[in-house]
């Protein structure tokens, strides 16, 4: 087990370095003045530019720049944004909101996806199964931002069941609508994946053996079919965290959630390149760390891989 964790850690480090290097290289290794180039035709005040120039050590050779950038990233010295506000402080304020949104979305897709997928798989070929299958395709096909507008309009405005926009009052209750939108697409994927793996496991030899032992149907379903079906589902949920972050940009924009996604979106609209790079780097860090956690969870779920060569 410790071997496995060590090996995963060793694999994660080059990925993280490579990804941040890629981001940094694209932005700062190009000819010309990267700071000015990043702002397009609406440059901020000279004092902000000066602060950024210092932040990114542009007078140093590239590798030193990158090293200092990494050091800054790990010490959360992320520089200032368009208005001269330190980005780290802003992130500290808005990150919990996005974390809450993502957690709620993750819970929605995991719980409902697994439940629906399990029922559909157990009733393969029946009406419930075929309905859910077609419905899930439709959910996958409708883009998040369209889904967001539709639910905002119907549930938020016309029915008035939930607040159409969140504003500064983000909590579990007000986030329910954006979290549903964010989780819905992956919900469909989780459902289909659970269904497929339930069907596969239902026909597995060990499930037949479990039945032959005299176990009751609920025990066979829970301890053998569902338990084993969780392995690919957890892998998917982990790999999909990145999609959740991308989705958060759109969702937070639509529902006016004061989170990282909205901040990022505003930075994009206002052509604040350095802010975008800083926030994306932090998100990549979070994404890589989250994936590592999922890998550990995966090892716990599937004892075989702890011993894999």
């Amino acid at each position: 087990m410790i071997q496995y964790i060590l090996r995963r850690l060793l694999q994660v480090i080059p990925v993280f370095l490579g990804t941040t290097l890629l981001v940094y290289f694209m932005v700062f290794a190009l000819p010309g003045d990267p700071i000015r180039a990043l702002f397009g035709d609406r440059p901020p005040s000279e004092s902000v530019i000066a602060a950024l120039r210092q932040q990114y050590n542009l007078d140093q050779p590239f590798w030193v720049q990158y090293g200092l950038f990494l050091k800054n990233l790990f010490t959360f010295n992320l520089g200032v944004d368009f208005t001269g506000q330190p980005i780290a402080a802003t992130l500290g304020r808005i990150f919990p909101v996005t974390a809450m949104l993502a957690a709620e979305a993750l819970a929605i897709q995991a719980v409902f996806g697994v439940a629906f997928g399990l029922i559909a798989g157990l009733r393969k070929g029946k009406l419930f199964d075929s309905t859910v299958l077609v419905a899930s395709l439709v959910v996958i096909a409708v883009p998040t931002f369209v889904l967001g507008f539709v639910l905002q309009l119907v549930v938020g405005v016309q029915l008035g069941w939930a607040k159409p926009t969140v504003g500064s009052t983000a909590d579990w209750g007000t986030l329910i609508l954006p979290a549903t939108v964010l989780g819905l697409v992956s919900f469909a994927y989780v459902l289909r994946l659970t269904r497929a793996s339930v069907i596969e496991n239902m026909n597995a030899d060990y499930v037949r053996t479990a039945t032959a032992k005299g176990l009751s149907r609920p025990r066979v379903v829970l301890a053998h079919i569902l338990r084993n079906s969780m392995i690919p589902v957890v892998t998917y949920l982990g790999a999909n965290l990145g999609g959740l972050m991308g989705g958060a940009i759109v969702t937070e924009g639509i529902f006016n959630v004061p989170g990282v996604g909205q901040k990022l979106y505003q930075a994009v609209i206002r052509s604040e390149g350095p802010t975008v790079v800083a926030i994306v780097s932090v998100l990549v860090l979070v994404f890589v760390a989250a994936n590592l956690l999922v890998d550990l969870l995966y090892a716990w779920l599937d004892p075989r891989i702890r011993y894999e060569k």
Binding site: P14, G18, L22, V23, V27, A37, L38, G246, S271, V284
Partner: peptide, 18 residues
Amino acid sequence: IFFALPLVLGALVVTQLP
């Protein structure tokens, strides 16, 4: 390395380039 860059996030960075 490219996989660790979620599509929309990566696109945000790339499209910031002049």
